[in-house]
């Protein structure tokens, strides 16, 4: 099975913001004791037969600064559990999780609260809004908890309200808002403390498809503006492809593959991942950079490495060249085979 360690991180070279090593989360009576005497190589079903549930199974994954990692999987695959381990809403059974170099399992209750008050924000699938508080008070809630004064927290809350486009709704109660608006409140609340790390647990799954699309655009706009480190959970592959820098696909608590979207599509590590990607329009995901053969050369107008094959469709069909040069910015990085690219375009690759 492929872990995160095998994939090369293309995005940043900094110390990872979140770094998890061999993380286990087992549910049941005395899971710690069970894990310590469990023979190595026990499968999910073996563990289940012993009366335990492996929520997270030996996961090692890193998230770099400014990166958006999307965790993908069907319901029950352990993706929500994993993100709750990162934020220590769940205490893990084995392994280590470091956030900005600090082992979060070693934090005292006070330090943990401090970490959440200053560094972490989280958005929930069914919003998790407090029903008795207005939009403004919900958004100002984390600020109130850390003891900011009334005036400051109001000013900050109004700022975020404007950011998510809820002006004029400050005094509404959650039940007076539509689902999309409620999730905007959830997003605003998670941003109020200006967190460095942003967890989103299927934030758009409870919304209608049209609203979902709109919220994804909104989310990308916010991310462009704020550049946070993000762990985003979804069970919707299209959503993952749209948003992710890297995708981690989970099954039965374990990570099947963690890689960039086009790698996942073109080079699925396991049969499970391949099945997942079967129906995807690969040309919209695969970029020229993935097909490039380093060292190869071609003639004529180069194409950009970051363009998807779908973007290049017109050129590919009309052109007659065998090899098309590819450039990353100004630098030539090689050339790609037109035949190969066409195969991706028509979906026979």
């Amino acid at each position: 099975m492929l872990g995160a360690n095998e994939t090369v991180d293309l995005m940043t070279s900094d110390v990872p913001v979140i770094s998890s090593k061999n993380v286990w989360k087992i549910f049941g009576d005395n899971p710690g004791g069970y894990l310590s005497r469990m023979p190595a190589g026990h499968s999910y079903d073996d563990i289940r037969a012993d009366g335990y549930i492996a929520g997270v199974k030996d996961v090692s994954i890193e998230v770099s600064k400014g990166e958006m990692l999307v965790i993908m999987g069907l319901s029950g695959s352990g993706k929500s559990t994993l993100v709750r381990c990162f934020s220590r809403l769940h205490d893990i059974t084995g392994g280590t999780i470091e956030v900005e170099g600090q082992d979060i399992m070693s934090l005292s209750e006070k330090d943990l609260i401090e970490l959440r008050r200053s560094k972490m924000g989280m958005v929930f699938q069914s919003f998790g809004l407090l029903p008795h508080r207005t939009v403004l008070d919900n958004i100002a809630f984390p600020l109130e908890m850390r003891g900011q004064n009334r005036h400051d927290r109001r000013a900050r809350a109004l700022e975020v309200i404007e950011l998510v486009g809820l002006e004029g709704r400050e005094n509404y109660f959650p039940r007076e808002l539509s689902g999309g608006q409620q999730q905007r409140v959830g997003i605003a609340r998670s941003l109020a403390i200006e967190p460095d790390i942003w967890f989103l647990d299927e934030p758009f799954s409870a919304l209608d498809p049209l609203i979902r699309r709109e919220m994804q655009d909104e989310f990308l706009r916010l991310q462009d503006m704020l550049g946070k480190t993000i762990v985003f959970i979804t069970h919707d592959f299209d959503e993952a492809l749209r948003l992710a820098d890297r995708i981690a696909i989970m099954k039965d608590g374990a990570v099947e593959q963690c890689a960039t979207p086009d790698q996942i599509v073109m080079k699925p590590a396991t049969e499970y991942v391949r099945k997942f990607t079967e129906d995807i329009d690969k040309s919209r995901v695969v970029r020229a950079s993935l097909l490039v053969q380093p060292g190869a050369t071609g003639d004529g107008m180069p194409v950009s490495a970051s363009a998807t094959i779908h973007d290049l469709a017109a050129i590919l069909v009309a052109d007659t060249r065998e090899m098309i040069p590819v450039v990353d910015g100004d630098k030539a990085i090689g050339a790609m085979s037109r035949q190969h690219a066409l195969k991706v375009l028509v979906g026979t690759s």
Partner: peptide
């Protein structure tokens, strides 16, 4: 999720109960 939202907002135990 409301409980988790409270925890992620950095509530202390008393704040969790009260708010």
């Amino acid at each position: 999720e409301i409980v988790e939202a409270g925890k992620m907002s950095g509530c202390t135990r008393w704040q969790m109960l009260r708010h």
